[in-house]
Amino acid sequence: MIETPGGADPKPIQGKQSSGSAESYRGPADGYSQEEYPRDSRVLENSPVQRDGIKYPTPNAGAAMSIRGLAKFYGDKIAVNGLSLDIPVGSFYGIVGPNGAGKTTTLNMATGMLVPDAGVAMVLGKDVWLHTSEVKRMIGVMPQPSQIFDRLTGLQLLLYSGMLRGMKRAESQQRADDLLLAFDLENARNLMVAEYSSGMMKKICLASAMIHSPRVLVLDEPFESVDPVSSANLKDILVEYAQTGGTVIISSHVMALVEKMCTHVAVIANGQVKADGTIAQVAAGEDLEDRFLQLVGGRHQAAHIAWLQGGGSESVAG
């Protein structure tokens, strides 16, 4: 197992465990470099590659995505705490963690959607914040259903998504037709997306991220609300995509899904990587879910709430 930054038992700065407070920011170089970094380096420039006095370890230019010392603060709260990670090309990479662990924030910073307060993110050898537009054209980020133009029909949305990426109309339309077929949306091609069910909406969002055949696909909870049949079909498409050299990065809460589909996994908690590597490395011979619970902690004995009874006691009258 590769223990990253600082492994499962990170050494705290200033004598505090990382618990999301501003003082516990771990800095950019944990686990990757011997170089010194300021202990309380909260004063950081907008562009993470132009920082005063903070030297970041060199990201892995050969990785699909390489992150070093990525950090994000919201007031006193640290959402992402000096996170470092390498995602190999051609991997099906799962990023897992409890709610509020920093998964979405990390992915947003690594895809040019959120300016980090510190750190470096590189996609296929390109610095995300120096070559933002170039990086965005290379990757496909699955939009959330609320982030699309849902007054277009399914076909129009895919066509739009392709043309926005500089594809010609005819090619976009051809690919849109293929995707609608592959995602079982053929019958809904002329229906306004706003009228789609949640699962259909997820599928059209995923399709819109794939139309330009990106080299890296970034998907936030892609299978949420998707029915088992469609889900199986989608998985096949994604696995085949990864097998042809594409990299899929998904964030998820569902351990079983990650264990079944992903080749690699990173467990994130409190804005840090607790463990990462191949599924086998991270699971370390145990069930992945049990290992996950060990790494992130937080399990406790079921509390007994005296008044919480399924039958017998009177409920509060309305």
Binding site: T132, V135, K136, P143, F149, R165
Partner: peptide
């Protein structure tokens, strides 16, 4: 929020 799609795409 559709604008988000534009920003994601660049």
């Amino acid at each position: 929020m559709g604008m988000t799609m534009h920003v994601q795409i660049g």
